[in-house]
Design a protein around this nucleic acid. Structure first.
Length: 832
RNA sequence: GCCCGGGUGGCGAAAUUGGUAGACGCAAGGGACUUAAAAUCCCUCGGUAGUAAUACCGUGCCGGUUCGACUCCGGCCCCGGGCACCA
């Protein structure tokens, strides 16, 4: 062994050995339990950052641990290669997006390899390859045939100067990021997939996902936003009646106005002879598309001058046009009850609209300050007075239904998934437009629709619109000249099914095959919390679509989910724009992959954000150096112990010190096993460090012992020393696989580190003669007593009550109660 | 604005989920070794008072439940993630 820890040599040689033996190539094996471990695949932005290091280290630790437990583990890797940054880079550096992307992938692949992840590289794929995206094109054509994909108009951010559609990210303070022009809302035809048809299934499925963090399930529930309510009709003179959806029909008598979206047909019609309304609608066009922009907007509106008839009171209520009403959500019109809805309240106050309380609030309720939104019995509601929420809902619903002025309805916040992007660097939407036959999906035999890769971007239009060879085609149905769709798919399409393709990565005649049925669902999925809703919801949705095509057998794609926190430096997210990034490349050179892995696991629990610290990295490095130095020092001893015959050791006959060391070893192992099972990996490292400290202490202890007559290798202390080290190596192996693999070999342990099993507890390891009990007086720790392990509750209480220190605090007081928590504590409750 | 998290020593954190607050580590200070430095090893390390034993205070803030609260409940403050075309 080299005297000093030479991480570069160790890591290169170990990785070379893994490659040579192809240790991580995996195939289906029905005799073993499978374990599919997947960390969200990276976008090839150019360089690996420490957030990636954290993400993939977490995955690798889990994969290697599951392997030690004897599972058939698959851990694949690939590239989420389509997306906006490639187009931006193409414009900036005048290089085709494909070229830029492939170059980045080559660079990042090398960086990933240096970190020593147990990937099956033979399964690697990139989503911008036609062999991959042809299958999502195929699935999409199936959805069109099934009526689950359709085309409709939808709003986009429109830059009126550059004449281009902007992503939300490209809108800064309501203006285009390049032109600086005020962004306009523009309606264009786009493709949608009916995720709302699966809303209930996606919602109910959340209850089965017990391996997911509760917060993610809650976020998805809220995102789907199922609500039961009433769609109520308000007749309008000389116009189509207004439909509004409400979950609070109990407040119907409190309606003081209706509000419609600026894009509502009634608003547009009414604006013809209403200049003020016309102007307002124009102004509302300068709102960007994002929901947060809409929600933080100052609530404004204009009275249309029209009125609608209240369906129960027949009173005329004014119709306002308001900027906060969204056309694509619900019906584009809402009923407003200022007394019992906070947003309506604020709007009514601003425009001095009437407020009618119709719920029995506390008599002291101040309606000049805030709305009363609790569910309470009705007042001022004619025959419905006194009814509580459920009864009122029912009675009002029935009354309206009898007049055919309402329907019960279930509404979702979830909207259908718009998958059209007016961009080049994405998978072409496989649709052909024919004058005679209309919209025709590209037949399976003609797929893939290949994206031309040799292009130049001008930053305005998609190059696809300027490549006649691309968009000129024949109609597959009638053979006439026809044109292709030039929009591409949302990149969430690629990332919504890649996990399944890793099982059937080389299958060229179908999207998936039986191997996908073996490997899916993913047993452990790992990724950033920022993907809690959108990516994870779309992936769940696509899994169900694939299931309905018979391609997979389960209802959900990911059994267990670990959402890792962000990597921060100086309290903010690491990012290029903030200039606070740390380059893993330099760190790997200086400290090695094992140090980086150890640091990212040790410094914070996986789900919390991780604060980067240079001295923390140094500390992790120091630990590995100490481990190496210890091993060098004891190599001869350990090797001879490993080479010797093993005789039985009766631990009960050993010194109490030795028994204590042994018990501590197993206490630490128990903690490490408990923590790695619950994925609290930072404390697994703590356990490893504790065990190492114990090992060092034991070696000092051993040095002080008188020379024994028995040969050293047969001494119990030597056997225990060896045991501690072999447990330590296996606890550390998933986290720092290079150094442990090398030490395993150099210290003469049998077999290969890779084939070892996770250490087991010894049956008698935790047996003890006495236990320590905390003695509290009135909840404050006052003393600690040691009692025999078999002592009864009464004995322990008696001992505690007789304890000198406890007596000091009991003093003149009377003991009111004594609470005993088995094996833990006694609380003596006293008072004067 | 809405939804979801988080807040514990100088710092990263732990507390097996209502039972010893601060394990493990970093930084700092002191010491050993060394001609010296680095490396390594040993000791101290929440605050206040005290030579000490020890006592009191202490988990963002205010209040509550409990024999007992970092943990549960109510109300606030601050920080972060998401909000449908960033991925």
């Amino acid at each position: 062994m080299q005297e000093f820890y030479n991480h570069q040599e160790i890591e290169q040689q170990t990785q070379h050995y893994w490659d040579e033996k192809q240790l991580y190539r995996i195939t289906e094996n029905l005799s073993k339990e499978k374990f599919y471990c997947l960390a969200m695949f990276p976008y090839p932005s150019g360089h690996l950052h420490v957030g990636h290091v954290r993400n993939y280290t977490l995955g690798d630790v889990i994969a290697r641990y599951q392997h030690l437990k004897g599972k058939n583990v698959m851990q694949p890797i690939g590239w989420d290669a389509f997306g906006l940054p490639a187009e931006n880079a193409a414009i900036k550096h005048n290089v085709p997006p494909a070229e830029w992307t492939y170059k980045n992938i080559d660079h990042m692949r090398e960086q990933l390899k240096q970190l020593g992840f147990a990937y099956d590289w033979s399964r690697e794929f990139t989503t911008c390859q036609p062999e991959y995206y042809r299958w999502e094109q195929w699935l999409f054509t199936r959805l069109v045939e099934k009526g689950l994909a359709y085309k409709k108009n939808a709003v986009v951010n429109w830059d009126p100067v550059d004449k281009t559609v902007l992503a939300n990210e490209q809108v800064v303070d309501g203006r285009g990021w390049r032109s600086g022009a005020l962004v306009e809302r523009k309606e264009i035809p786009q493709w949608f997939i009916k995720i709302t048809a699966y809303a209930d299934e996606l919602l109910d499925g959340l209850d089965t996902l017990e391996g997911w963090p509760e917060q993610v399930r809650t976020m998805q529930r809220n995102w789907i936003g199922r609500s039961e309510g009433l769609q109520i009709t308000f007749p309008v003179a000389d116009a189509a009646p207004l439909q509004v959806f409400t979950t609070r029909p109990d407040t119907l008598f409190g309606v003081s106005y209706l509000a419609i979206a600026p894009q509502h047909p009634l608003a547009l019609a009414s604006a013809q002879n209403n200049p003020a309304l016309q102007k307002f609608i124009e102004e509302c066009k300068n709102i960007e598309v994002s929901e947060s922009a809409l929600a933080t907007l100052e609530k404004r509106g204009v009275n249309t001058g029209l009125t609608a008839t209240h369906p129960l009171t027949n009173e005329e209520v004014p119709i306002w046009c308001a900027n906060f009403v969204v056309m694509d959500y619900g019906t584009g019109a809402v009923m407003s009850v200022p007394a019992h809805d906070q947003r309506d309240f604020e709007f009514a106050q601003h425009y001095d609209l009437p407020l009618k309380p119709v719920l029995s609030a506390n008599s002291a309720w101040d309606y000049t300050k805030t709305a009363y939104t609790e569910r309470s019995p009705l007042i001022n509601s004619a025959e419905f007075d006194g009814l509580a929420f459920d009864a009122a809902f029912e009675a009002i619903a029935t009354a309206l239904e009898n007049k055919q002025l309402a329907e019960r309805q279930i509404n979702y916040r979830l909207r259908d998934w718009g998958v059209s992007r007016q961009r080049y660097w994405g998978a072409p939407i496989p649709i052909i437009y024919c004058d005679a036959c209309g919209t025709v999906p590209v037949p399976a035999a003609d797929l893939p629709v290949r994206l031309p890769e040799d292009v130049t971007l001008d930053g305005v239009n998609s190059p696809l619109k300027e490549i006649p060879e691309f968009y000129h085609t024949q109609c597959p149905t009638c053979g006439a000249a026809a044109t292709r769709e030039t929009d591409t798919f949302d990149t969430f399409m690629e990332s919504s099914w890649y996990y399944a393709r890793f099982a059937s990565y080389d299958q060229n005649s179908s999207m998936l095959d039986d191997r996908a049925k073996y490997w899916t669902p993913v047993d452990q999925y790992i990724g950033g919390i920022e993907h809690a809703v959108m990516h994870l919801l779309y992936a769940r949705f696509l899994h169900k679509l694939m299931r309905d095509e018979g391609l997979v057998q389960t209802d959900e794609p990911f059994i267990n989910l670990l959402t890792q926190g962000m990597v921060l430096k100086d309290g903010t997210k690491m990012s290029k724009s903030k200039g606070n990034t740390v380059d893993p490349k330099l760190l790997i050179e200086k400290y090695g992959a094992d140090t980086l892995r150890l640091f990212s696991i040790f410094t914070a629990p996986p789900e919390q954000s991780l604060e980067w610290s240079d001295s923390g990295v140094e500390g992790s490095y120091k630990f590995l150096k100490r481990l190496w130095a210890f091993s060098v020092k004891h190599q001869t001893q350990i090797c001879s112990i490993n080479a010797a015959d093993r005789s039985y050791v009766n631990w009960k006959e050993q010194s109490s010190e030795l028994q204590t060391y042994r018990r501590e070893l197993y206490q630490i192992l128990q903690q490490a096993t408990f923590d790695i099972e619950r994925l609290q990996l930072n404390t697994v490292v703590s356990a490893a460090m504790k065990l190492f400290n114990l090992l060092v202490e034991l070696s000092h202890h051993q040095a002080k012992l008188p020379a024994s007559e028995a040969p050293f290798v047969q001494q119990p202390v030597a056997r225990l020393l060896n045991k501690m080290l072999v447990v330590l190596l296996r606890i550390l192996y998933p986290i720092t696989p290079h150094i442990t693999t090398r030490l395993w070999k150099d210290l003469g342990y049998a077999g290969k580190m890779h084939d070892a099993y996770w250490p087991k507890m010894a049956n008698d390891a935790l047996d003890i003669d006495s236990i320590n009990i905390i003695v509290q007086v009135n909840g404050k720790v006052r003393s600690k007593i040691s009692v025999p392990a078999e002592a009864s509750e009464d004995d322990i209480k008696a001992l505690a009550l007789a304890d000198e220190k406890a007596l000091k605090f009991i003093a003149q007081n009377t003991v009111r109660k004594v609470i005993y928590i088995p094996s833990k504590l006694i609380n003596i409750v006293v008072s004067a």
